[in-house]
Amino acid sequence: MNEVYTFVNSVLLGTTPILWAALGCLFAHRAGIYQLGLEGLMLIGAFASIGGAVAFGSAWTGILLAMAVCVLVSVVFWFVVVILKANAIIAGLGLVGIGVGGTSFLQGAIFHTSGAVSARAIVGTPVSGTATGPLSVLSSLSLLVYLLPVAAFVVWVVARRTNFGLRVSASGQYPFAAKAAGVRVRLVQLGALCITGAMCAVGGSQLSVGSLHAFSYDMTSGVGYVAFTAVLFGREAPWGVVLASFIFGIATALGIFSQIHAIFGLPLEFIQMMPYIVTVLALWFAGWRWPQAGSAAEGAFAELRG
């Protein structure tokens, strides 16, 4: 039984950063912008929150700083992609490069180390790591995990039950109609991208101040791309995204689980590929089952039409 608890614990741990970023990316995607730079935003968020936590001695101040920085970066991304009509995919991949290289550079410039930067100030963990029994499911999980149901509900309300959410969808699906109806498409896209940036910052913070309590080079290792896939696989619906993120979280947890218990005697590296293989399979399923979803060629140039 204890193993089941541990497994559920690592599923929650693996899902949280994916889900925060995916819920944010939902808005960018619904607004018709391929935000492939989630990975970069998360890295920047992870670094900024550690930096803030070290500087101000409070993890929450660090997270706020991370959100501010990521919103700022998202505004620049919006300017380049929507105003200057740069290709969103290339700019997004560039954002990942900026995230990987920029945080590495700043790490050296500010903390004078190329190893890990750790912070003593961390996000609170309501259930301590020594908990036993069913409660151990939640052991050592940060408050950012507990906030997820709230975040998912708020995202659902905003996306599906508010005027803004409607404008976001209209801007993505029928930009010309939205424009004709008086929606300021570019501003709506700015709003959507800023929400994406802020939520990616939280997702990145969960990786650094929320669980590892440290920042290291390229620590996201593909979580951002997986989150992006969760949006495609969840068919841009809030609850679909939640479900998709949990599937990827389970795949991640299997990787962690198998480091302790050998599965079918497979080498460790093959188990660690699991999240990526599951992502490909999920995309394949989505493409097979819902043929319109998930083609880059269709969405990629949406920004040129808006």
Binding site: A86, N87, I90, G94
Partner: peptide, 9 residues
């Protein structure tokens, strides 16, 4: 990353 960011603008 910076150059990719702006190259298609």
């Amino acid at each position: 990353g910076l150059v990719s960011f702006v190259v298609t603008a």
